[in-house]
Design a binder for these strands. Structure first.
Lengths: 140, 140
DNA sequence: TCTAAACAGGATACTCTTGTCCAATTTAAC
DNA sequence: GTTAAATTGGACAAGAGTATCCTGTTTAGA
């Protein structure tokens, strides 16, 4: 249900969070996260435009996390590259549903809301500090 | 985040549930749900193969709900046409994550689980009886 | 200053989803 | 039995998402 772009962008951001203050090239991130390098390059551009990563061009350049891990939620990442679209108005554009969704679309939007809440309340720092023997992206 | 196919199939099922025991042709469902008729035809085939609707071919034929509305969850509909894919194994296939997902993928799977739970616990009957002035699909 | 490393951006190709069309089959009703 | 309504299935077209490549620009460092 999550797009490849979402999966890839989260892997990249997590990788950057695990190497604080170390410039990472697209090639390095691509290798560590197993994402096709040319495609990752596009994703990184999107993240840079959104201010989630900072970029340094030229020799010995690369990417850096744009915000502190404890202030950066995975919701921001997702919304930057492939936003969750909540259902605010009736998809059938029925005039009487303008103000109030019917039970079907209200239920579907409720499901979207639960995802949004999980993502809003999860920071990169949360992912790093979780007492989990499996280190993100690493075969440790 | 939900595919068009999911949206369309749920509209169709809800429409059938609102017209109990009345055969509905593809054209009728398409009109009521504002779904392109040729595409809906394919979706109905999928639902029929899954046993969620019963079909009568030939003159004065059409579709009927295959199960009683209080026994039919929207989860079954979604899984029939465009299944929610839970994350059971590490997408990077890291051997050490075989048994235990890392915090990132565990969190993503957790979000999928909340959606699954909402859908599993919602029957068509629930959607019909909800005290909501907006009747599903209807401009009442 | 020159070179090479690295990102930026545009063009292109591939794949999957979505959408359309048509001939074949089924079947109720006359 | 004939006809017309209706689904079935296949083929095909359009669009979005995914993936690749190439040229240009930036910039550290020799």
């Amino acid at each position: 249900m999550f797009s490849q772009t979402v999966e890839y962008s989260l892997r990249a951001i997590v990788h950057l969070a695990m190497q604080p203050d170390m410039l990472q090239t697209t090639a390095q991130i691509a290798k560590a996260t197993q994402v096709p390098a040319p495609y990752l390059s596009k994703v990184m551009q999107t993240l840079a435009r959104g201010g989630l990563v900072t970029v340094k061009r030229g020799v010995s350049g690369g990417f850096l996390l744009g915000k502190s891990p404890d202030k950066l939620t995975i919701y921001e990442v997702v919304q930057c590259v492939d936003p969750i679209q909540r259902i605010h108005t009736c998809p059938l554009d029925l005039s009487s549903h303008r103000k109030r969704l019917c039970s079907l679309h209200k239920k579907m939007d409720g499901a979207l809301e639960t995802v949004e809440t999980v993502f809003r309340t999860t920071t990169l720092a949360d992912l790093m500090k979780s007492p989990n023997p499996s280190v993100p992206l690493c075969n440790s």
